[in-house]
Design a protein around this nucleic acid. Structure first.
Lengths: 206, 206
DNA sequence: ACCTGAACACCGTTCAAGT
DNA sequence: ACCTGAACACCGTTCAAGT
């Protein structure tokens, strides 16, 4: 009677994760990514920590890269939803909306340094069409913001897609320089303000 | 008599690399980085390809990360020298000098996608002070360029360091988006032109 | 449907030993 | 000084077998 309940290691609540193993893996993977980094992320160690055999993840992720891709996808989803919420509460004024968006983006990107690298890595070149697809809504959001700026006269006419790409590039670049310790984090606020000011003048009407 | 010369595998010229093993490793590593990527780079495979035992690299690189750091350092050195040569032949006009610099930077960054990721990776946070030091001359070069722009009146007064950081961030970001296939490479020239134009207007005098 | 556990072929790193 | 080669502890991936 007792043998069946006592065979599990301490901390493992159940032998099976009734379909929740996928989420458990993603959660543990994100924690490891945050505390240890991408290279240290091991499928076997993840499985061990969850209390499942090392072959079990195979049911939910074809291989290690598939799990990393899934993490990147959740990253894009969270970033998009944060920017969206920011814009929902940012009022009507375009410069204020832009400023709020840049702040949210750069904060997310510096709060999730390892995840940012995963999201924008060139690793998922071939295959991983799903990662690129997950990035789309975020670009669409930026595209819409720039279009609003053109309608309000704050942004000069021109291809709104390219204008938003340059903006995203600048935000991603600032975060990368800070995450890589090439620029001190104490400069973050000043740099984002300056980048926003320059963008407003540089992309603004003549 | 023949036994000493015939014991080596075909293709291995000599059993020992009289001090040139370090360069041989770096060269092979860069080739692997370019064709396979960072994760696929294995010290053992490198040693095998060169015809040396798998313990030999230890003499020249403390561990795998030390070799990756060395690669990143050569990357910064090459980028700096290319930008320097570009500036040496770019004439006096500031906008022309800026445009040439941006083109050289972004071309290097897209021609060496995997290397760029290594250079700007947040992986070398702790330790790897040498990698950050290797990036310094490049930043100094950009700093000097911006200072020239301020002297010629093409760039508004203000902290030239922060202005150059925003510029570097934008260039690195554009390259990252293209290397990660989030933006089609056919847009590269148009994007760099647009970014340069925006920078000149955004950072220019009022 | 979901997980186990052995097996395989690889790693990076360490270290005594050779020349 | 520089390299070898065995040893160790880890990987990711595959796959028959269990429930």
């Amino acid at each position: 009677m007792t043998e069946t309940t006592e065979t599990q290691a301490a901390g493992a609540e159940r032998p099976y994760h009734h379909g929740s193993l996928r989420d458990a893996l993603l959660g543990a993977a994100e924690a490891t990514l945050r505390t240890q980094g991408q290279e240290e992320l091991s499928l076997r160690e993840l499985a061990r920590g969850i209390g499942v055999s090392h072959g079990a993840p195979r049911r939910h992720f074809r291989d290690r890269q598939a799990l990393l891709d899934a993490l990147a996808i959740t990253g894009f989803e969270r970033l998009e939803s944060q920017v969206r919420r920011t814009l929902d509460g940012a009022g009507e004024d375009f410069p204020a909306r832009l400023r709020a968006t840049v702040n949210t983006f750069v904060r997310f990107a510096t709060d999730n340094a390892a995840l940012l690298e995963l999201m924008f890595s060139s690793k998922h070149r071939e295959g991983a069409e799903d990662v690129r697809a997950a990035a789309e809504p975020g670009f669409t959001l930026m595209f819409g913001l720039i279009t609003q700026g053109q309608e309000s006269g704050d942004v000069a006419p021109g291809d709104p897609e390219q204008v938003s790409i340059v903006l995203v590039a600048t935000m991603q670049g600032i975060a990368t320089l800070i995450n890589g310790d090439m620029v001190d984090v104490s400069l973050l606020d000043e740099l984002t303000d300056r980048a926003t000011d320059q963008f407003l003048r540089g992309a603004g009407p003549v």
